[in-house]
Simulated assay, not measured.
Amino acid sequence: MILISKYLVPRGYTGITIYPFFFIKFKALKTDVVLINHEKIHLKQQLELLILSFYIFYVTEFLVKIFKYKNWEQAYRNISFEREAYKNQNDLNYLKSRPIWGFLNYIID
């Protein structure tokens, strides 16, 4: 499901996934297959970690990274979930071959 809301998507981002919803900032982004694939990867990650655990892990990892990098964008880009999604967002078949808990391959940076 895709919902359009420029108010729920944080400034500087084009989409956000909060299971089971995917919010995008602009209606035109509904056809952006790379963005949709990126967010589908997050949906898979959230399901694997039973949703609540995903958010706890995400926020904890972000806090560690912000302390390490002292830069919001760099911390965000180095969260394992984001690293996996960004690296594989162009591969529209990635989710078909993705190993369970694939984000674990991106924890060490």
Rank of each mutant, 00 (worst) to 15 (best):
S5Y: 03
L8T: 10
L8R: 08
L8N: 10
R11N: 08
G12Q: 04
G12M: 01
G12K: 01
T14M: 02
I16R: 04
Y19I: 04
Y19M: 02
Y19R: 00
P20D: 06
F21R: 04
F22I: 08
I24D: 12
K25D: 02
F26G: 00
K27A: 03
K27T: 07
A28I: 03
L29E: 14
K30A: 07
K30Q: 10
T31W: 15
V33Q: 15
L35V: 06
I36V: 15
N37D: 14
H38L: 05
E39R: 02
E39Y: 11
E39L: 03
K40V: 04
H42D: 07
K44G: 07
Q46R: 05
E48F: 04
E48T: 01
L50W: 14
L50T: 10
L52A: 12
F57T: 03
F57E: 09
Y58R: 01
V59E: 15
T60Y: 14
T60H: 08
T60N: 14
E61I: 00
V64G: 04
V64I: 13
K65M: 09
K65I: 01
I66L: 12
I66E: 15
F67L: 13
F67H: 13
F67V: 10
K68C: 06
Y69T: 07
W72E: 15
E73Y: 10
E73K: 15
Q74K: 14
Q74D: 14
R77P: 00
R77H: 12
N78G: 08
N78R: 06
N78I: 03
S80M: 14
R83P: 08
R83E: 06
A85E: 14
K87Y: 15
N88H: 12
Q89D: 11
N90L: 05
D91M: 01
D91Q: 11
D91F: 04
D91V: 01
Y94C: 08
Y94L: 07
S97Y: 13
I100K: 06
I100F: 03
W101E: 11
G102L: 05
F103H: 10
N105W: 11
Y106E: 13
